[in-house]
Simulated assay, not measured.
Amino acid sequence: MRWLRFGPGKRQGQQDPGRQQELLHQARQQFGPQVQAPFAAQADAAAGLLGADDDGLAATATILREFADSAYAEIYAQAAALGRPADRMNYRPLWQNAGGHLRWPLFALPCGFHPYIHVTAAAHVLGAQGRQAVGAADPDQLLDHLFEILDLTLDGWEFARVRIDADAATLASRLITAAREIRAAMGNPPPLPAPAREWMRRNLTVQVLDPTGTQPIGGWNPGKEMRESLLA
């Protein structure tokens, strides 16, 4: 009985698409790299905007979907120009084989969302409200997009020389937490995707820099966090 999966608040049939669009407009206008405020502070404020009710949760799902779709379109076009496939379920082979010829596009996607602001905020909301989220949006799609963005984030670190600063590590950690909570709320989640399983088999600790990218502040092991969060 699917209706048992809905959390408190409005059900899907009672959501207000107009309000969801207004929340998305606010998120784009009020937050972004054009705003003179730290990414982390903006992400926390955006999470407050999006986490109030089921319309906010639905808008959060839209941010993930539009970001993932936009990233795929950009990477597909680059891969096609090289005569290579781009698999949304596993970008790692593409980056391993052609990373030197690819541009990592996540900082300037046409959708207008920033990974360290809007996507970090979306992941934070889902990590805090996983049970409500599976009633406001399709949990299978949520998981697909969370893992897809996580894959691209870690590929950027490993193959595209993307700086691993505190904002980058926070994004990855919150994506893992959100995936854990959505999987727990589903009860019978799908198998973990190949990139996540590959990272779990590794014991790679990355050095994390401060947000300015000048001073190391510690190490973080993504595979270890995935094992502890997603295999529990």
Rank of each mutant, 00 (worst) to 15 (best):
T205E: 14
D151K: 01
A86G: 09
G127R: 00
L209I: 03
G56V: 04
P190N: 12
P17C: 12
G9Q: 12
A77Y: 15
A137M: 09
N97Q: 15
H25N: 11
S173R: 10
D87E: 15
N221G: 04
L4A: 15
A59M: 12
L143K: 02
W104Y: 13
I149G: 03
A52Q: 15
S229R: 11
N188R: 14
A59T: 08
D16N: 15
E66K: 10
A79M: 11
T153N: 13
A46W: 00
G223M: 09
A71F: 06
A43W: 02
Q141H: 12
Q207P: 00
V162E: 11
A196K: 00
A121L: 09
I176A: 04
M89W: 06
A108H: 15
A166Y: 00
A61Y: 04
V134Y: 00
R11C: 07
K10I: 06
D53T: 02
I63K: 01
A81F: 07
A52L: 11
G51C: 09
M186R: 08
I164R: 02
F113H: 04
R131W: 15
E148L: 11
P222M: 12
A128F: 01
P189W: 03
A184T: 10
L143P: 00
L102M: 03
D151R: 01
P115M: 05
